[in-house]
């Protein structure tokens, strides 16, 4: 009885030792060297695997960063400057300069501004509606409201506003990964430079029609009148195809264009609410 147990133990120990020796040599033979910094860099990345950097996932970006000499073309928009700086410290390089961005919707055609002219009852998907016809309103450029951007957002940053029927983008949650930009079949979402206190001024319209038809389709459409361009002292506004565009790099948030726009197509967000007061202050300074 006891000899059986003893034999078993000895046999198994021998087998274990033999396997250990074989495994040791196999491990030596098939060893793959991997830069340990890849793991470190990956640990710093947000692990969202959103694809905002252009790679399939965070691991691929980490590999690309470690294997490349510079940060050129390599940036994690989700982690932002903070994460890139930490990565730079590990790799002993200088961190790239990148402005934080945020997604904005270039359409404000809620039902009160943009009357419905037809009813769509097909599959609820913006791409399908866009390929079928103009949409439920007379604007062939505006938001369709079926939420392809909502489905594309992995950060829960976009929701359809029940009142306006338009997507509402949360500044806190948006990581500027760009998934919504790619998802929108009408190219209505733009990644704009994030300013202090999340302030934003932009033309919330994408209608390239001439003034008349644009205005007819939507009361808050940009009609390309050029008033904002004239009033801007910083040459930040350009008008192409009857549509104004504010260059975020040149805009100084002076807000002159906002009041000038006859259709209220230019919107300001996160500015102090008391606008008349600000005006009177400016007048006081002038006086």
């Amino acid at each position: 009885m006891s000899s059986t147990i003893l034999t078993t133990i000895i046999c198994l120990s021998l087998l274990a030792f033999l396997s250990a020796v074989i495994l040791y040599f196999v491990a030596q033979k098939f060893k793959v060297y991997e830069d340990p910094r890849i793991d470190e860099v990956q640990a710093l990345l947000p692990a969202a695997n959103c694809g905002g950097c252009g790679f399939a996932g965070c691991r691929n970006l980490a590999e690309a960063i470690v294997n490349s000499d510079s940060f050129e073309g390599l940036n994690c928009p989700v982690g932002g400057a903070a994460v890139m700086e930490e990565i730079a410290t590990i790799l002993e390089r200088t961190a790239p300069v990148s402005d934080p961005k945020v997604a904005v919707l270039k359409c404000k055609g809620s039902p009160e501004h943009r009357p419905r002219t037809s009813v769509y009852d097909g599959a609820a998907d913006c791409r399908i509606v866009n390929s079928l016809y103009i949409g439920e309103t007379d604007c062939s450029y505006g938001c369709l409201g079926y939420g392809d951007c909502v489905k594309a957002c992995t950060f829960d940053a976009i929701h359809i506003d029940a009142l306006t029927g338009l997507p509402l983008i949360s500044d806190e949650k948006c990581t500027s990964c760009g998934a919504c930009v790619r998802a929108c079949p009408r190219n209505l979402i733009e990644l704009r430079k994030k300013a202090k206190k999340d302030r934003k001024i932009y033309v919330a319209c994408s209608n390239c029609d001439k003034g008349g038809p644009a205005r007819k389709a939507c009361r808050v459409a940009c009609i390309g009148c050029g008033k904002c361009q004239k009033v801007c002292s910083f040459d930040a506004i350009s008008i192409v195809n009857n549509l104004a565009y504010i260059d975020a790099a040149k805009c100084t948030f002076c807000r002159k264009c906002v009041g000038e726009c006859p259709t209220n197509a230019i919107i300001e967000i996160n500015f102090p609410p008391a606008k008349p007061k600000a005006k009177s202050e400016a007048e006081a300074v002038q006086a």
């Binding site: 097909g122 599959a123 998907d125 791409r127 399908i128 390929s131």
Partner: peptide, 12 residues
Amino acid sequence: RPLLDYIRLGKS
């Protein structure tokens, strides 16, 4: 199910 709607999208 809106089969054709999606197939048309997939096809294009």
